[in-house]
């Protein structure tokens, strides 16, 4: 045991010191600006999401179909993620939809992802005898969309020793469901560069 004792003591002291140091480090939590410019890493971030959603909404509101003020019925389809980054494209389309809805110029029909929930609710009202027959949602009353929104996001990533460059391109299109014509399309580009050191 003897040869170890001094070493063990050193170890104990250093472990204790480490524990104390860890104990001293106090975390500070603060609220930040949810819409502030975020440049922590060059992965797809909150600022990119907000900029894209805002640019697309404003541009779409200027499209003739919407500006003509005849309250088009739109459904949001998938924005395809063509990058290898985990970009929540649903979060982007949700933001776009919320902004458009707030403008009061567009109405939204149930999209494919929410259809199951919609059907379930109609079925539930239909099947449940506790509901007032006069007011329950009936089958065959849903309104189909006149236009569909779809898009994609792609990226080009270049990396060298001390520099990483990411270029994102977000493209959104509005198609007329009846005649298949492209009514509106717009793009938003973002370039971000990280340099080390």
């Amino acid at each position: 045991m003897t040869p170890l004792t001094p070493l063990l003591r050193i170890a104990t002291v250093s472990v204790l010191a480490a524990a104390l140091l860890a104990g001293c480090a106090k975390d500070t939590v603060r609220y930040g600006d949810a819409r502030g410019v975020e440049t922590i890493t060059n992965e797809f971030g909150s600022t990119d999401l907000q900029m894209i959603a805002e640019a697309m909404t404003r541009s779409l509101l200027d499209a003739p179909v919407v500006a003509a003020n005849n309250l088009p019925i739109v459904t949001v389809q998938e924005v395809r993620n063509k990058t290898s980054e985990y970009i929540d494209t649903r979060a982007i389309t949700d933001s776009i939809r919320a902004e458009l809805q707030k403008s009061g110029r567009v109405r939204f029909a149930v999209d494919a992802a929410d259809m199951a929930n919609q059907k379930e609710e109609v079925d539930r009202q239909q099947d449940d005898e506790y509901y007032d027959r006069e007011q329950t949602a009936e089958k065959g009353r849903m309104v189909g969309a006149q236009y569909r929104l779809e898009g994609n996001i792609s990226s080009i990533v270049k990396q060298a020793k001390d520099i990483k460059d990411v270029y994102y391109k977000f493209n959104l299109q509005m198609w007329n469901v009846r005649d298949g014509l492209l009514e509106w399309t717009d793009e938003k580009e973002i370039r971000k560069t990280t340099t080390k050191g």
Binding site: D33, R35, G36, V37, T39, T47, Q50, M51, E54, K102
Partner: peptide, 9 residues
């Protein structure tokens, strides 16, 4: 008239 916009760099 609307929510605060996001900062655009």
């Amino acid at each position: 008239a609307a929510d605060e916009e996001s900062w655009k760099p």
